[in-house]
Every structure is written in structure tokens, then in C-alpha cells.
């Protein structure tokens, strides 16, 4: 099972590299994954604009894309579906990026974007604004303030002069997240019955309100670039902070930057779409399971893979029971969980 003829350079000239660790299959080469992802991005975004509650035939869709034909179709494709598909893609990318960074920083495979507790802060802030009857702008603002408050609390507990105590980040985050959960329950209990459905809808998270994913995309690009620049330091951090220091890594700086990126990515994703689970925890593992653990591949692959997963899930969510939308988190799990379980089963 071990390579009989060692490849001179990994991934060059060979599409597949067999390792004993993956007896059921082979490590898919960098190039194959890259091509698949690069084709996948425009493909899923385009496919997402075909489907929806307003049926548009393939011919009409093509005309609409080109800016011809029925103006209603043009309107639906260009101002509703395309921005929403882009928002889904960017949100998925942000969640997966936060997942990669936190799993590495906390050295915990179960870490996801919500372990920091910032999404709980967004929920509490947003619900408070709704309870006070404020406008959507203030709901977003209060959400942001809630996230900032939680982040400040977690940092206050975990930042030490000598560097980050990463276990305190985890414990403080989990503790504050459950406190936020309790607050959310309290607000839901004391709110008037008329407001509760709107609150629940907002809490569950969906992408239907997404109109302008531009700022979100800019954030994703910047954060991904920072994470990519940190790639070798992140690789070293998988050995633990002491070993990373011994290998010459500025551990404190790397942790601070990566935590900051993960926090911003999570807050941006939660403000855009609510707390969508599964993407952040599962997408990085999918790539690790097919052999991509080094951050030079793991970071970009996860960002794109998370984006593709959430775009497909959102398309399914708003199509299967149209005109009713099922929560995107349900679709994410239905699509993602079987893939993850299959990969776990075939790797040893």
C-alpha cells in the first residue's frame, strides 16, 4: 500500500498518491482538488440561479443571464438569486475558515465557529433590539455589540502577558455561550406572543434577507489571505505551542491574528445568515480525511468547499418545498452528514 515508486514531487505527474493510511482510496492530488473546486464555484452559483420558487425554464434563464428576454426573469435572476447564491457562498466560506482556524488553535477537532460564544452574543443583542421594537439596522448593530462584548469577555479571561491560554478561550467561550443561550430563552419567554415567531425565524438563521454580499466577500478575501499567510505557523501550531516556539514561530502573534480572523469571520457569517451549524466543523474535516492537513491547502480548500456546500444547501432549502423555505441548516446537514460519515467509514 505504500508508494512503491516514490514521487519526485508530491502531486506532480500523478493524480493519485496511495498511502497506507487511506486503504480504501488514494489521496486526491492538489491539482485535481483545485480544478474541481475552481469549476465547482461558478457551477454551483449558476445552478443556484436556475432554481427557485418562480419557475424559469433553461432557455429563459440563459436569456435572463445575458440581460435579454423577460425583465421579470432578469430581475429574479440578477437581483434575487445571484446575490443570494453569492451570500450563501461567502457565508459558507467564512464558517469553514473559522472552523479551520479554531480547530488548529484549540487543537480540538470538535471546535466550530460557535465555541467562542460570539454567536450567542449576536443572538442576545439582536433579540434585545427586537424586543425593544427597533429597526433591522439596530438589530444588526445590537448583534454586533453583543458579539464584541462576548469577544472582549473571552479575551479578558484568556489573554495572559505570556501569551494566550487556549484552554481558557475554550472554557470561557463555552461558558459564555451557554449563558447566552439562557438569556435567549429568557427573552423568548418574556416577549409578547406576537414577536416570538419573528424572533425564532431570525434565530434559526437564513439567507433570505441577503441582498448585498459585497462587503462580506471583501471580508472573506482579506481573512483568507491572512490565514494563508499564517499557513506555516498554523502547521507548526498543530504540534502544540511549546514545539511551535521551539521551531521559531511567534506563537502569541499567530494566535492573536488567527483568533481575530476566526472571530470576525464568525460574527460576519452570523450577522449575515444566523447560526448555521455543521459547515464550520465538517468541511475542514472532509479535506483532512482526503489527505489535506497542511494549511497551504486546507485553508483555501475549506473556504471554497464551505462556500460550495452552503450554496448547494441553500438552493435545496429554498427549492424542495417551494414556496416554503426549509431552514438552510437542515439542508446542510442532510447533504453534508452522509458525505462526512462516508469519508470517516472509508478512512482508517
Amino acid at each position: 500500500m505504500i508508494d512503491s515508486a516514490p514521487s519526485p514531487k508530491s502531486g506532480v505527474g500523478q493524480s493519485f498518491r496511495c498511502t497506507e493510511a487511506l486503504p480504501a482510496g488514494c489521496m486526491v492530488s492538489n491539482r485535481v482538488v483545485m480544478v474541481a473546486l475552481l469549476i465547482g464555484v461558478p457551477a454551483v452559483i449558476l445552478i443556484a440561479t436556475v432554481f427557485g420558487s418562480v419557475p424559469i425554464g433553461l432557455h429563459d434563464w440563459r436569456m435572463a443571464l445575458l440581460g435579454e428576454g423577460d425583465p421579470i426573469h432578469y430581475e429574479v435572476v440578477w437581483t434575487h438569486r445571484l446575490p443570494r447564491a453569492m451570500a450563501a457562498f461567502v457565508t459558507g466560506g467564512l464558517l469553514a475558515l473559522a472552523g479551520v482556524l479554531l480547530q488548529t488553535l484549540l487543537r480540538n477537532p470538535l471546535a466550530d465557529p460557535y465555541v467562542l460564544g460570539v454567536s450567542g452574543g449576536v443572538s442576545v443583542g439582536g433579540l434585545l433590539a427586537m424586543m425593544l421594537g427597533l429597526s433591522p439596522f439596530f438589530i444588526g448593530l445590537f448583534g454586533l455589540l453583543g458579539a464584541a462584548a462576548v469577544a472582549a469577555l473571552v479575551i479578558g479571561f484568556a489573554a495572559r502577558a505570556s501569551g494566550w491560554d487556549i484552554y481558557r478561550v475554550l472554557l470561557a467561550g463555552v461558558g459564555i455561550a451557554s449563558a447566552c443561550g439562557a438569556f435567549v430563552a429568557l427573552i423568548l419567554t418574556i416577549s409578547p406572543a406576537g414577536q416570538i415567531q419573528g424572533m425564532l425565524f431570525w434565530l434559526m438563521g437564513d439567507l433570505s434577507a441577503s441582498r448585498d454580499p459585497g462587503w462580506l466577500a471583501a471580508i472573506l478575501v482579506v481573512l483568507t489571505a491572512i490565514a494563508f499567510l499564517l499557513r506555516t505557523n498554523l502547521d507548526a501550531l498543530t504540534l502544540g505551542t511549546v514545539k511551535a516556539r521551539l521551531l521559531g514561530v511567534a506563537v502569541g502573534q499567530t494566535q492573536t491574528l488567527a483568533l481575530l480572523c476566526a472571530t470576525i469571520a464568525t460574527v460576519a457569517a452570523v450577522l449575515e445568515a444566523g447560526a448555521i451549524g455543521f459547515v464550520g466543523i465538517a468541511v475542514p474535516h472532509v479535506f483532512r480525511l482526503i489527505g489535506w492537513h497542511a494549511h497551504r491547502s486546507l485553508v483555501p480548500f475549506s473556504v471554497v468547499g464551505g462556500g460550495i456546500l452552503l450554496t448547494i444547501a441553500d438552493t435545496v432549502a429554498r427549492t424542495v418545498a417551494a414556496p416554503i423555505e426549509i431552514p438552510v441548516g437542515v439542508a446542510t446537514a442532510v447533504i453534508g452528514v452522509p458525505v462526512l460519515l462516508w469519508l470517516i467509514a472509508r478512512s482508517r
Binding site: T238, K243, G248, R288, H293
Partner: peptide, 29 residues
């Protein structure tokens, strides 16, 4: 790090890559 290396007494076995990847991390400095 180019001049002094330390073998730690105990480390987590959690590393996703191959033995070669693991050893190659030492080239970082």
C-alpha cells in the same frame, strides 16, 4: 531554532499528516 532543538518528553499523537510531513515541519526555521 536553527541552533538549538529540544525533544519534548511528551506530545500529543494528534497529527493528521504522514510521518514525512511530520518530520518536514522541522525545516520551518
Amino acid at each position: 531554532a536553527q541552533r538549538i532543538g529540544l525533544l519534548l518528553q511528551d506530545e500529543s499523537p494528534e497529527y493528521w499528516g504522514t510521518v514525512q510531513d511530520y518530520v518536514a515541519l522541522a525545516r520551518l526555521p
